[in-house]
């Protein structure tokens, strides 16, 4: 069955693609990490992958913004591949702010491919959509049977005291070609956007492939139909809407024993 949600085409003026691929090392060798950044324009801002640590078990990579992110015309693409048996731990040094785009738009597209027994833990930091920003943000994760994914995301609509910007956020998670989670959230300053009620912060933690006990961390917990758990929290202040415990649970479940 074909279930992929196509990536939104935004015709960004400047595209910067970051590629990260982690493969297991042979024997007790450190795992192998390949990274590349390509830009359609030398001036394009990009996410620079910085290898923080790697050993036989894990590669820890930090996604460091190189240039001012995110402004009108930016197209950020991140392709992450973890091969069978490897573990990539992605971190971000700080949050991202999408600035007023004055009629323009920007995109942020992530593609994740995980082989059998591959592990990805990605502790995303807050993504702030300022007043006047217009961002298409997509995540497409394709997992082989037996892959593990822990993903944390927080979106904040508007900086403190500001009108919300416009965000169309889509996520598709498939395991072995079957849909596990498909969600499209068009959020913005329009009055009928009751999708997140009277809140401006939406925090999510996703845990796929690793068992989580039925009575563990029940607050905001949504058990998905095809296995996996998503925790959700809505709030007004980013620092009060963090899902820290759920993230510890998800990350702990996905990290190797």
């Amino acid at each position: 069955m074909h279930t992929s949600t196509p990536t939104i085409t935004r015709n960004a003026a400047r595209v910067a693609r970051t590629r990260i691929r982690v493969s297991p090392g042979s024997g007790n060798e450190r795992c192998r990490v390949r990274t590349a950044v390509s830009r359609s324009d030398p001036a394009a801002a990009a996410l620079r992958p910085v290898l923080v640590h790697h050993d036989a078990t894990v590669a820890r990579v930090s996604l460091v913004p190189d240039g001012a992110l995110l402004v009108a015309g930016d197209g950020i693409e991140v392709d992450v591949t973890v091969d069978a048996g490897a573990w990539l731990d992605l971190i971000e040094p700080g949050g991202t702010v999408a600035y007023d785009m004055r009629g323009g738009h920007a995109s942020w597209d992530v593609r994740i491919q995980l082989g059998a027994g591959a592990r990805l833990t990605w502790a995303g930091r807050p993504f702030v959509v300022s007043a006047g920003a217009d961002v298409g943000r997509s995540t497409v994760a394709q997992l082989a049977d037996g892959a593990y994914l822990a993903l944390r995301e927080t979106v904040v609509l508007g900086r403190d005291g500001e009108w919300p910007g416009t965000l169309r956020q889509r996520i598709t998670v498939e395991r072995d070609g079957h849909p596990v989670l498909v969600e499209d959230l068009p959020l913005g300053p329009w009055p009928t956007s009751g999708l997140i009620g009277k809140h401006r912060v939406l925090a999510s933690v996703l845990c796929i492939g690793a068992p989580v006990g039925a009575d563990v961390e029940s607050i905001g917990r949504l058990d998905l139909d095809d296995g996996g758990v998503m925790w959700r929290r809505l709030g007004v202040q980013a620092h009060e809407t963090t899902l820290d415990t759920a993230w510890q649970v998800a990350r702990g479940a996905v990290a190797p024993p």
Binding site: M1, T3, R170, E183, D184, G194, L195, I196, G197, L222
Partner: peptide
Amino acid sequence: TEPASIPAVGSPQIEAWAQ
């Protein structure tokens, strides 16, 4: 006509209330 084309617009607020 296709399963993949079914709209996927969610409502985290309605879902939280339903839970």
